[in-house]
Computed example of a mutant assay.
Amino acid sequence: MPEFTGEAGAALVFLIGYLAVFGWMLFAYLTHRIKWRSRYSLLFFHVTIRVASQACGIGFGVLGFANTNLFLAFLILGAEGYFSLVLCAFRFVISWHQHNLASRESWLEPRDLPNTNKLRKFFLFIFLGPLAFLFYRDNPMVIFHCVLILANVAIVVGGSYLAGADYSDPNSADTRKRLQVSKISRTAGQSVFLAGNAILLGIILVTIRNNRRDGDARKKKGTVHPTLTLLLIAWFPLIVRGIFGILQASVFSLSYYNPDNYGASGFTHRFTAIEYVLGVLTEWIACVLLNLTYFTSKNDPKKSDLHDTVDLNRIEGSAPADVEKL
């Protein structure tokens, strides 16, 4: 008979937490406080995925192994939630560059020129995948997107491959093979995400250093823009989540596929606490901090029209750093 377990309770707590964020973002969209075509759209996508993931977590916590499809959906949606959140953090740094640097350009992702064929660019990504970077070598984010996509595929494939294992006979050759292949695949994917988080820290610190030296849209030098402070704070739960991802993929005692982590109706209390504190709480905190940048960036100027930026940079003797003075 279905029962409301501790795992279902933890999933419900974070479902409420993510629904609160979902409600705030939907309100902000409907009242035009934030735009659909903005950095917040990817964050909204993350929140939507996490709402679905937590709903599946409640279902699995109540039904247990009577419905394993809910369990698989919980795992896959959780992986996609972390993937989207890492991309969110980079998008927020890029947006800060575009709103606050004198050039109104981000050195992470130069904006497309007005005559760029965006449909062609889209299909290059669709058909070429990671090879698209051959056409956009001057755009670091293209390469990074491609690498993260491959890492995400490795994590999802590794988890799905292990889902077919026979856990009634954990010492069988097939089960042991599946465990090894999944461990390698998931660890490799999580390692890329962890490396991405390390790179993110370097980018944030370089941006903060330049902000102190050159100032920003507030016309202040020697200080740090509050949005950058929030991004730096948000990095800490993200790196904890990344380290946990590595450990969960490589240490069997922390794995979803360790039978000792399950009772008759689902996760043990120990595993539930580990999963939700290190896996879900860290993502929710980072998500809330990214949302708070709305308040710290309200007075930032709009992104300059790219036509104006290009024309200004063509003026003799005006380097991008000097655009603000013209």
Rank of each mutant, 00 (worst) to 15 (best):
G23Q: 04
W24K: 10
W24M: 14
M25N: 07
M25W: 07
L26S: 12
L26R: 08
F27H: 13
F27D: 12
A28Y: 11
A28F: 12
Y29A: 02
Y29F: 15
L30C: 06
T31H: 08
T31A: 01
H32G: 07
H32S: 14
H32W: 06
I34A: 07
I34T: 12
W36S: 13
W36L: 14
W36K: 13
S38Q: 03
S38G: 12
R39H: 11
R39F: 05
Y40H: 15
Y40K: 08
S41F: 14
L42P: 00
F44Y: 12
F44C: 10
F45G: 14
F45S: 11
F45P: 01
H46I: 02
T48L: 15
T48V: 14
R50Y: 08
V51W: 09
V51S: 12
A52R: 01
S53I: 06
Q54P: 05
Q54N: 15
C56F: 15
G57K: 10
G57L: 10
I58D: 11
F60N: 01
F60E: 01
G61T: 10
L70S: 08
F71A: 08
L72W: 13
L72G: 05
A73E: 01
L75Y: 12
L75P: 08
G78I: 00
G78H: 01
G78D: 03
A79R: 02
A79D: 05
G81P: 04
G81T: 03
Y82N: 12
Y82M: 13
Y82V: 13
F83Y: 15
F83D: 11
S84K: 08
L85H: 07
L85G: 07
L85F: 09
L85M: 13
V86E: 06
L87V: 10
R91P: 02
F92P: 09
V93G: 04
I94C: 05
S95C: 09
W96Y: 13
W96D: 05
H97K: 04
Q98T: 13
H99K: 15
N100S: 14
L101V: 12
L101F: 06
A102Y: 02
S103P: 02
S103H: 00
S103F: 00
E105W: 03
S106G: 09
S106C: 10
W107V: 05
W107P: 06
W107I: 05
L108E: 11
L108I: 04
E109G: 03
E109C: 11
P110G: 03
P110A: 06
P110T: 02
R111W: 00
D112V: 00
D112G: 00
D112F: 00
D112L: 00
N115A: 12
N115V: 06
N115H: 11
T116E: 00
T116V: 08
N117R: 14
N117T: 02
K118S: 01
K118A: 02
L119A: 13
R120G: 03
R120V: 02
K121L: 00
K121V: 05
F122Q: 08
F122D: 04
F123D: 02
F123I: 07
L124D: 02
F125K: 00
I126H: 02
F127R: 12
F127K: 11
P130N: 06
L131T: 07
L131K: 07
L131C: 10
A132T: 15
F133I: 15
L134H: 04
L134C: 09
L134F: 14
F135K: 01
F135A: 10
F135D: 00
Y136E: 03
D138I: 05
D138Y: 10
P140E: 05
P140Q: 07
M141P: 05
M141A: 08
I143T: 12
